[in-house]
Each structure stands twice: as structure tokens, then as C-alpha cells.
Write a protein that binds this DNA or RNA. Structure first.
Lengths: 349, 349
DNA sequence: ATGAAAGCGCTAACAG
DNA sequence: CTGTTAGCGCTTTCAT
């Protein structure tokens, strides 16, 4: 399992200059460049305040020595680290997109992402303690399963906090959410247009705030049409939980016209579970999701779903972190995406 | 799009104590506890050196003030930040698992994950510069598309670096990889046992080091059996690229017995592309993947693939970061997982 | 077992 | 435009 070793270094001497040698400080650069330490510091922090000649010389020396200013020392001095903490669940297709979007936008703003993922809500409080010691410029708490109590103690701290996709946080902290209820209504309206007469709503965990809102949006739209819409709990926001439902579920011993599922990943499981026992989608039953993860667009699923505008939501979250005074919520609209998992039913019954 | 505001605080006064107030320093705690600043510092850094009574009192005061020691100041003093940098591609099913495993193991060791994701290799060098300023305890470079040149300048820096899944780095930096060639051979042997007489290898990008090794493993196994195995380049390591291949590909105007695909995510596309035009898997053609991402196990794909032992690989990478002296590579074996995308062929031809 | 003091590398007045 | 200086909050000798 272990083998081979390192051999030759880079072939050209030029390449041997290290990208960064952390043991080189501004003092050393100053000596070599024949200027003061503060001039070196200024060259990197506020180059416009230094004459072009000096600036170039300092850059040259710094480059040759592998000097880069220490973000740790700067963070100490500035009382801000340049780090944004993001706390998200370990798994779930949805979160990968969120993480990479946060990463991109944070880096674009020349800051860095301190990421913590968690499997269950238990560890979240400790995780927050640990990362808050880094004097974060801001903290993003994601997931509808983080307790509101944990947030309320945080907002009193000196660090800006924003809740991401956690409707429960509405009156406690600044937050960014997709309009879950409206999105569910949009999907329900689409199903109504497809001509469904009975629907089963498949949720992940009934206590989750997103589940509640999505179910509420569904119920309100359907009940106005006299369509019943019982809630079935999958038990988790993942594929396996959905698969069990799809493979077994029959409401009152017969299939509903549609399964409206609270999250795409669960919906993939429902779809596969249904297909496993020979039920065709959309011929025999319609299926919808929520989130708009990449797989929704894959031919194998091609799911009707509500696409969350993640880029916009991340932008909003980072903006709320800066506008400390703002206590407003940002509620963005999702976009209905109609795939091949729904179609107008020929009501042959 | 913007609505509502924050209202009541927590209902119990007890909850109003902030988790952490960054403006409280050890000096303030010391005053309130009637001890010196260094005693407060010791209580948190080396509690065993302080009497139980003092320790408890300091903890009590600290808690009531919302004090937590600053990791930034400690990092400055200690010349180490407690941060591990991880640089990975933005997208790809495989990487989500890698990220969350790094997160878990790094946190378990009470350190923190500084994550940077990148879309194309161009930005990687700048990203590395940015994060190395945080005096990282170590840096993990992942992906077979990071240039070797970038790594070679890094290993000369003071910071421990390890390459993750980048076979090209073999003689340049400590690295952790799955045994790509052996894994490909394992898959090829399985296909041979299935009775295939012709195979098309679908790669992502021909220049990628993982592609090369996986193709080599395939070719060696197949050629020993007199089975040809042309290389088809999908052009990217993603679903869409695979879909195009699956939807169009016919080698010499007819299907091969099997598509051996270089990565699961591409394979999902190939599968869906084939199905789209009515080709059945595994009845008409066999398909295999590589990586063992979660979706491989989903019923809709149920892919024969080589599962990478990510937990083990991450453990190995973090260990290499500590053992600075070690220049060895860690090469782990993947595990063949046989799904429903392959079966023994009845050679009716 | 505790306190005093030095200093990690930077930034930002302030002075020249 | 550049140099001098005083900390940021912690850890760690070195005394006591």
C-alpha cells in the first residue's frame, strides 16, 4: 500500500524559488530592499502610498525571497480575519452546489472560506464555538435542522450571523431563504393543470421548517380545488428514504395521481422505487421534486422541480453579513422547471 | 423580495449570554477573576498547570463573559494556525464526498478546514497564494488537473503539501492516490469474465493523469485477451459529456459489447444516452464506471464500478501532512463493486 | 501555582 | 514619500 518516494526536484533552478516561505517576514524583506519594515508593509497593504520605484524594488525582493504578508498577523492587528465561516450538512446533493457557490463568491471578494460540515445537529454548537475563535468576518448557518436556540445565542455575539435556508430563523436572525411556500404552490398549481385528482406529499422530516412550509403551500393550493393531499414522511432527506416510499407507497391501497416530494434527492428515490415495481412515470403517476439540483436535469430523472437560485441566495447571504445594521430577511423566488416527470394526464378514469 | 424584520430576542435571560464575544480578551477575564492574564491563558492552553479552584473560577468567569481564546492570536504566537487548506474542483459528485470527509477528520482533530474550490486550473495558483498566507498547518491539493509545475514550487515552501488523487505528482510531492491502473484492471477482468469481445473506453480528458492510468490498466488486461479497446474522449468529467457519447457512440457503426467509462459521473451520462436511443443496459451493452460515488448505488444506475476508499485516503493525506519527513506515496486499493450495469453475456452472436 | 514580561508580524497613526 | 512607534491577544520562559 505504500511505495516509491520523492526523487528529483524541479528541473529548472528558476522553479526552485518557493511560492511562499512563511518564515520570511517583512523585516527581512526590508533589510534586503534597504527600506523600513513599514514601507514593505505599505507596499502590500496600500501600494498607492509608495513611490513606484520603491514599490517595484520591494516586490522584486519579496518575490525572490518568497515573502507573502501573513494573514494571521494582519488579522490580529485588524481585528478581522478575512475568513467567512460556513456551517452546512455533510451530505445532500443540494449542499454541494451551495458550498461551491459560497467558495467562489467568497474568494472573488478575496476572503477565505472556513467550512464545517455536520452529520447531525448535535455537533453544531461545538463546531460554532471552534470556528468563532477565528474572529470570523461572518458566519453562515445553513440547514433547516440547526436549532433556533443555537442561533439566538449567537446573534448576541459580536460576529455577524446569517441563517441560510432556515425559515425558523425568521424573527431571530437575518436570513436568506427561497420562498418555500410559494414554490410549493407553484408546483401544486402545475400538478393541478396536469389534471391530478389525488396527491401524496412526501416530506423528509415533518419537523423541518422547510417541510412544513412546502407542505403548507401544497395543501392550500390543492384544498382550494378539493384535492386531498396527505403527508407521508420519508424520514430523511435522502435517496434511500425516498426509495422506500416509492417502492411501497400506495395511499388507500392505490396510487395517487402524483407524488409531490419535498426535495429532489428524495424524489429520485421515489422515482426509482416506483419504477422498480413497474410503475411508470409520468404515465401512471406524476412525480415532482424541490431544489433543482443538477441531477434533476439528467435524462434519467428529468424532474419537474422548483429550482433555487443559489447564486442569488449566496450573494444575498454575504451581503447581509456586511450590512450589520440590516435585520431584514431576503426571500427569493424559486423557478418552476418542468421536466418529463409530469405531463397532462388523460383522465381515462 | 425583502420582507419582515427581527423581533423578540430569546425569551429567557439566560439565553442572552452570547456564545462568544470576540471583544472580550483574557485580560478582561483576568480582572474579573482576580488573577493574572497569564493564568487565564494557561487555564485554556494548559489547564493541568493550574490549581483546580482557580481553573474553575476562570472557566466560570469566562463563560459568563462569553470569552473564548482567540485562535488568531494563538496562531500568531505559535506560528501555526490550526488550519488545513484543501483545494478541490468546484464540481463533480466525487468531490463532495472528499470534502465532507476532510471536514470531518480535520474537525475531529480540532483543526479547521480552509476550503477553496476551482473551476479551471488557471485560478489555482492564485488561490494557493491566498490561502498560504494563513500559515496553514498543511495544504491538500486535489484533482488530476492541477499542474505539476505548481506543485513543485510549493514543496519548497515551508508548508507541508500533499497531493490527493494526482498520480502525476508521484515523484514531486507526497501523495495519496487510489491504484488507478490496478482498479481499471480489476474492472477489465470483470468485463472479460462477463464475456465481452469488444470494448470502448470512455475517458474524460486524455491528458488527465488518472485517465491515462485507467486506460492503461484496461488496455493491458484486454490486449492479453486479444480484445481491442479504443479510447473515446468525452471531453469533460461530467454527465453531459458522457450523455453525448452514449447517445451517439457506435464504434465502427456498431456498439461494442461494453463501455468502460473512466468516471462514474460520465458513466451516468453514457447510460442515459444509451437508454435514450433504446439501447438496453446490460442486455445490449455493459457499462462500468470508476470512483464509487453514492449515485452508483442508486437503483436507477446501479453501476458496476471501482469504489475508492475515501475515508482511508483522507486519513492518509492528513497523516502525510504531519509526517513531514515522509516522502512516501500512499497508494490504496479500490474495491470492485458489481452492479446491474454488467452481467454475463449470452454470446448469441 | 501564579505573575511579570517579551515578542509573534502586521497596521496605522504620527512625525519628519 | 518614508521611518518610528505602539500595540492587536496570546504563549511561554523566567522568576517568585
Amino acid at each position: 500500500m505504500v511505495s516509491s518516494g520523492r526523487k528529483a526536484k524541479g528541473s529548472k533552478a528558476k522553479n526552485l524559488v518557493p511560492v511562499h516561505n512563511a518564515s520570511v517576514t517583512s523585516i527581512e524583506v526590508a533589510k534586503h530592499a534597504g527600506v523600513s519594515q513599514s514601507t514593505v508593509a505599505r507596499v502590500f497593504a496600500r501600494p498607492e502610498l509608495v513611490s513606484v520605484a520603491t514599490r517595484q524594488e520591494v516586490f522584486r525582493v519579496a518575490e525572490s525571497l518568497g515573502y507573502l504578508p501573513s494573514a494571521i498577523a494582519a488579522g490580529m492587528r485588524n481585528q478581522r480575519s478575512g475568513l467567512i465561516g460556513v456551517v452546512v450538512p455533510s451530505y445532500g446533493e443540494y449542499w454541494q452546489g451551495v458550498i461551491s457557490e459560497f467558495s467562489r463568491q467568497i474568494n472573488d471578494d478575496s476572503r477565505q472560506l472556513l467550512l464545517t460540515t455536520f452529520r447531525d445537529a448535535q455537533g453544531v454548537e461545538g463546531a460554532i464555538r471552534s470556528i468563532s475563535r477565528y474572529r470570523l468576518d461572518g458566519l453562515v448557518l445553513a440547514s433547516s435542522t440547526i436549532g433556533v436556540g443555537q442561533i439566538s445565542r449567537l446573534i448576541n455575539s459580536s460576529m455577524p450571523v446569517v441563517a441560510f435556508n432556515q425559515p425558523d430563523a425568521a424573527n431571530i436572525a437575518p436570513q436568506v431563504v427561497v420562498d418555500n411556500q410559494q414554490g410549493a404552490t407553484d408546483i401544486a398549481m402545475h400538478l393541478i393543470e396536469c389534471g391530478v385528482k389525488s396527491v401524496a406529499f412526501v416530506g423528509g422530516v415533518a419537523q423541518a421548517s422547510t417541510d412544513k412550509l412546502r407542505y403548507r403551500g401544497a395543501v392550500e393550493a390543492f384544498s382550494a380545488q378539493g384535492i386531498s393531499c396527505p403527508y407521508i414522511q420519508a424520514g430523511a432527506f435522502n435517496y434511500d428514504a425516498g426509495f422506500k416510499i416509492g417502492a411501497m407507497a400506495a395511499v388507500g391501497n392505490q396510487l395517487p395521481d402524483a407524488f409531490m416530494v419535498a426535495a429532489d434527492e428524495i424524489a429520485f428515490g421515489v422515482l426509482d422505487g416506483l419504477r422498480k415495481r413497474g410503475v411508470r412515470v409520468p404515465e401512471d403517476v406524476l412525480v415532482t421534486g424541490f431544489d433543482g439540483v443538477p441531477q434533476s436535469f439528467w435524462e434519467g430523472y428529468d424532474l419537474t422541480t422548483l429550482v433555487q437560485p443559489i447564486e442569488l441566495m449566496v450573494t444575498g447571504a454575504l451581503k447581509l453579513l456586511v450590512e450589520k445594521n440590516s435585520t431584514d430577511s431576503v426571500i427569493v423566488e424559486g423557478q418552476l422547471r418542468i421536466g418529463n416527470s409530469t405531463k397532462v394526464r388523460n383522465n381515462h378514469g
